[in-house]
Write a protein that binds this DNA or RNA. Sequence first.
DNA 1: CGGAAATTAAAAGTACGACTTTTATGTCAC
DNA 2: GTGACATAAAAGTCGTACTTTTAATTTCCG
Lengths: 233, 233
Amino acid sequence: MTTPAQGLHSHVLAALGLAITAGEYPPGTVLRTDELAQRFDVSRTVVREVVRVLESMHLVESRRRVGVTVLPTARWNVYDPQVIRWRLAGADRPRQLRSLTVLRSAVEPVAAGLAALNATPEQCRELTEQALGMVATSRGRRLEEYLVHDIAFHRVVLSASGNEMFARLGDVVAEVLTGRTHHHVMFEDPDPAAVTLHVQVAEAVRERDAARAEELTRRIAVGALQELDVLAP
Amino acid sequence: MTTPAQGLHSHVLAALGLAITAGEYPPGTVLRTDELAQRFDVSRTVVREVVRVLESMHLVESRRRVGVTVLPTARWNVYDPQVIRWRLAGADRPRQLRSLTVLRSAVEPVAAGLAALNATPEQCRELTEQALGMVATSRGRRLEEYLVHDIAFHRVVLSASGNEMFARLGDVVAEVLTGRTHHHVMFEDPDPAAVTLHVQVAEAVRERDAARAEELTRRIAVGALQELDVLAP
DNA sequence: CGGAAATTAAAAGTACGACTTTTATGTCAC
DNA sequence: GTGACATAAAAGTCGTACTTTTAATTTCCG
């Protein structure tokens, strides 16, 4: 189960990106393009393009007469959705899930507050609909369906905030929720309290109650963090 | 005053990235690699590498038989520091500054709270030092020096939070603060209230008072937002 | 023996040309 | 009009040759 790989470029990029983010090449490791070309059985052209992309993500640095050096984690563009996906697929998924969840706990309440001020009627409707969808699928081992509504719900909130930076975190949240659902054993149904909170957030937004929307979302976030504490080291 | 351009790649990348983020090519615009190669007087090889990087930032999409299509703003990787820099240099700098400041207002208080729990003695010391530096340079048209301390201060807070995602926002905050300082007419000295708040945050962190650190930082953020409201449409 | 200057070579950067693959679009038969 | 087919346009890939930078080594002078 590797990558679809429609094109040599994506294939090599996925392979290298995954390997690097997985820590397979410790920081400071030096790779040579010729060697990589040989290893993946592609032309140097393809490798160079891949390296350029990796370089733009600050995963590696390419210097003449030296080669392609793997950079320390601290330099990585950890907001790049691609990098996030690679890391979530790799070894330290728990650590990654935690730091992303903390980020969510900071951003989403504020976003919800703004959404209460800025959401269009259409967005309010969508929000309510997704919350109801969550309620409907919250019992009876329907986690996959629940997940779809959950993701949609948070996407709408972030998007309705009217802030571009928040809106763009939709993908990140989707990755987190997906990772979380697929990681846990997936036997239980979601926490009923969380479901209720989502419904109430939808209400608060509809009623333009920013403070309440913010506070309720904060509770969702705290819950998510606690859940993580329980289920991860 | 373009880019240092050590290497054809960076030159073309900067030119194209800047042009696209500036809205010079509206979404849907189609570029052809041959044409670009000719226009910038470089080989197709270089153009292709640039396009690949632009593609990884989701600024463009390259499809066979079609060409390189400029994507709508909503698709852009707005967390990529490079993209942020390009956009801050471009036309809608005010809008960009605002959305980034809102992001800060969500993240930094939480980060400060965590910093109070996690900061090392060394980080506490550094924090105090920078706060004092801000005090020292807060009067007498020393905005450039003040800026250095301000940036350093916020970097330490974000870094001391112990959360990787927060830490990586240091660059973004640096860009915002720099953009802000250089945008405003730079006649006045910084708001004394803000300076005091920074000193108090350093105190709160040192005393491990998370709630207070969070609250004080929130006030800094609110102040920054209000300042923006006053000085921008 | 030491340190600076010149030399060397290794690796990335760039260029070019040939070829392949995908696919939007236009054409033709029905 | 609709569907099958042919066409061509553009990106994708490859190989090779050449340039440029620069780490490392060697040389040479004090």
